[in-house]
Design a protein around this nucleic acid. Structure first.
Lengths: 151, 151
DNA sequence: TTCCTTAATAAGAATGGTTACTATTTAAGT
DNA sequence: ACTTAAATAGTAACCATTCTTATTAAGGAA
């Protein structure tokens, strides 16, 4: 299916990025990246670890953390700011933001429509050299609102 | 001086908020809040703990964490999203955002000018009930850029 | 192909920010 | 002042993440 192809493309990009940075292409790296890339749930490290373990039983927690950090370094994934103890990861690199449900901790992607793009305040660049920026919207998601209603 | 008065006003508000929520006004709460309110450095829990300890040597770490959490609950302070292991706190409740230096971890306040206000994408409210939102800009601050230049 | 170098890994221990537990204290209503 | 439940101090526990060390294997060289 389509997503499979997209993931394969992304994995090719990852391999390129590794070679470009003198980093080895290891099965662990591929598998860990694949897990983040195929999920739309913005998984945390533990979730990635469990998923990878089902295919590579000997993978270590440390490898998952180390690999997620280097994938971030390679700009292959981003870390989602969530004010929660567990870091969450996202392999969707298109500019977008997040809706964070404070009830169930689900993370939803938000894409701006054309013309809605967020512009930084002029004063922002006075603080230094901007690398990236990030908008999160916190609230209670539809699913949780409905659950509460039905009670 | 002026800031002293402002802090005293804020403390009055805190006392009111406590009474309103059936929470006791304890010297620990006042002192912990005062430390956050008088700082412009967006201190972390440990910094607050050390500062309070110099005045109340028996204060416990637990009290600081518990109190910071309840101050947040009372909407007297906010927790600054920073992707770092240590939570940072801010008693400035005016709508504003943050510039986070990825080198020195300093947090700078950014205020939007009139007309620059950030508008959320229309699609955002489709996800649920929005409670608040947050913009962070990440980069390298002027101070760190200059330090690097001078080397 | 085989060898070599060194990056990457597995396993488990350690770390560090935060939270939980429990006996004691104390704010604040009667 | 008396009462009582909330808040605190001290300390142990928790848990996500990182470190340590011996081992493995990617990928270039011979």
């Amino acid at each position: 299916m389509n997503t499979e192809i997209l993931i394969d493309e992304k994995i090719e990009k990852l391999k390129e990025a590794c070679r470009l940075h003198g980093m080895r292409v290891t099965p662990q790296r591929i598998e860990i990246f694949k897990e983040v890339a195929k999920s739309c749930a913005h998984p945390d490290a533990e979730t990635v670890y469990e998923a990878v373990k089902s295919k590579m039983p000997n993978v270590s927690v440390d490898t998952v953390y180390r690999t997620l950090a280097s994938l971030e370094e390679l700009n292959m994934i981003i870390r989602v700011d969530n004010l929660l103890p567990k870091a969450r990861f996202d392999a969707d690199l298109r500019p977008h933001y997040h809706f964070l449900c404070t009830k169930c901790n689900e993370v939803y992607d938000i894409f701006f429509e054309e013309g809605e793009e967020l512009t930084l305040p002029k004063s922002a660049e006075a603080f230094g050299q901007i690398k990236d920026y990030n908008l999160q919207i916190r609230g209670i998601c539809k699913k949780c609102l409905n659950k509460h209603d039905g009670k």
